[in-house]
């Protein structure tokens, strides 16, 4: 693989993403993915969530969480395919799929958080 000066930056974003994901996502999955839908805890009211999302700090924090988590996924998944399945001849396709997907997802996250009333 040729040396790319962008590689250290990708590693840095991977680490930052890994940290943010480890700190915030377990609690979010437990609450939004299990406790609220299954009724273990009372789900927050629509008005409460709207007020929470209405605050710019929440939106910026969620946007950063989404971007870093997606870049973390891109970097790690790329190496999962690379090492796990050893599909090295498809390197270009894998890179475009992973980082391209992360960029598209980030833009979508930005749009969805922007248009919250």
């Amino acid at each position: 693989m040729p040396r790319r000066p962008i590689e250290p930056l990708l590693w840095l974003l991977f680490s930052a993403g890994g940290m943010v994901v480890a700190l915030l996502i377990p609690a979010l999955v437990f609450l939004c993915g299990l406790a609220f839908p299954l009724g273990w805890l009372p789900a927050p009211s629509h008005a409460h969530l709207l007020a929470l999302l209405g605050h710019p700090v929440t939106r910026i924090a969620l946007f950063l969480l989404c971007v870093l988590a997606l870049l973390h996924w891109a970097h790690r998944f790329r190496y999962t395919l690379y090492d796990g399945l050893q599909i090295k001849h498809l390197n270009e396709v894998i890179n475009s799929f992973c980082y391209g997907g992360a960029i598209v997802g980030s833009v979508l996250a930005g749009y969805l958080l922007w248009q919250v009333p």
Binding site: C66, L70, T80
Partner: peptide, 11 residues
């Protein structure tokens, strides 16, 4: 390494 897939799903 596969945990990243579930991170992406949660996003």
């Amino acid at each position: 390494e596969l945990s990243s897939v579930f991170v992406a799903w949660f996003v």
